[in-house]
Design a protein around this nucleic acid. Sequence first.
DNA 1: CAGGCCCATTGATCTACATCAAGCCCCGGT
DNA 2: ACCGGGGCTTGATGTAGATCAATGGGCCTG
Lengths: 228, 228
Amino acid sequence: MVKHERETVAAIKRAALFRALAPATQARLAASVTTLNLPRGRQLYRNGERCPGLYIVVSGRIMLSVGATDGDSKVIELIGPGGHVGLAATVLGTPQAATAETLADSTLLLIPREALLDSAAHIAELGLQLMAALGRGVCGLITDIEAFSLRSGRERVANYLLQLATANGTRTRPFTLPAKKSLIASRLNLTPEYFSRMLHELIATGTITVNGRQITILDPDRLHGTSR
Amino acid sequence: MVKHERETVAAIKRAALFRALAPATQARLAASVTTLNLPRGRQLYRNGERCPGLYIVVSGRIMLSVGATDGDSKVIELIGPGGHVGLAATVLGTPQAATAETLADSTLLLIPREALLDSAAHIAELGLQLMAALGRGVCGLITDIEAFSLRSGRERVANYLLQLATANGTRTRPFTLPAKKSLIASRLNLTPEYFSRMLHELIATGTITVNGRQITILDPDRLHGTSR
DNA sequence: CAGGCCCATTGATCTACATCAAGCCCCGGT
DNA sequence: ACCGGGGCTTGATGTAGATCAATGGGCCTG
């Protein structure tokens, strides 16, 4: 086995989707994978195109968005290493509902649709993992819709920061926003201007400090209070 | 085979989720099913509860919603005969992200979680159908988020009416709203008042006529124009 | 170190939609 | 036939958040 093959197996093992699978299954998937090295700003696919397969993010960052590429658009999700892109459209075989684009130089694994479905049909545990991932997608989107419909901009910002912080261990340890602020704003259904104002409101009350994309939560309890 | 069993097999065959399956698979699912007859206004489960399994709607109508049961809430989807409820939470085994409630006297089939997952693990085509259903859920929710973020209230109303009409055959044939107007409004992220105004705007321009819950599209092209 | 560019911030203004408050209509029960 | 209540409409008013317009930094590049 050459070095490059060992690396793709290692990347598969690190992917959230495949971590729980038996080594033999991981190896089988790795066999049908192609590795992509893409520069920043490249689109994986556009809204409406057919999706060649499932992408696993090894390094870099991917933005999922909807709306016109030129005019108004809205960020659905920001996906980092270990995550995956394009699962729903791949299992359906229908045109994509969103557009995916690299936000930084990224390396991805592409598992072709045929290989994925074929493996899922033969290996029950893989099928269950894919279902679970899709289920998590559904729940996440429902939670987003709830937030957009029922919570104020301020609440959404507070809640988002809290989520990032808890993902990063202790809530008071500084962390970095996963993209530039205008994209975070869009992810939260806000304009960059309004997002900035909300951030500065939190700074003014001594709840957080901001230094570029670096955020420190000073008062988690107060932040939690304003997120509800 | 008694009459009641034949009926549940027939209901399974009519469900969008299971229509494409082999008769043997349909029979296997039917064997583990319980039939529920629920009066209007009964909750199947609440946001945060664990879901006992997958519900198939045989007759009646189900509303999926998020938010406080008492205070503000938002309708995610309205589900009629042939549809299904609770798939995502069932495959995940996690608490529900939404609340489900009957809007009319309804009869449902309940397929327990264990039975569904077990069958899906053994029968690949069932697994693929479940994945496809979850994928459709993801795409639908993304489309909703796009509509809520990027389109005006007027556009959402026009688009929704157009969708209902195309589902019902010829677009100019009268059709009936699937719930009272205040719930449709919530489904579209609007207040009942604003929804009413948008409807009357469309009436004023001669685009549609409204009689209670019955809607007739007079000018599909104009409606399509305002939906964009 | 100057120049340009992109991003963030800040202030002033605007507006799509929500909220509040009556009325009205239809329909079902007595 | 009367009454009551829920759901829809209509009008007046309020506001969260968008838009428009400068200005102010990094940061890279030459």
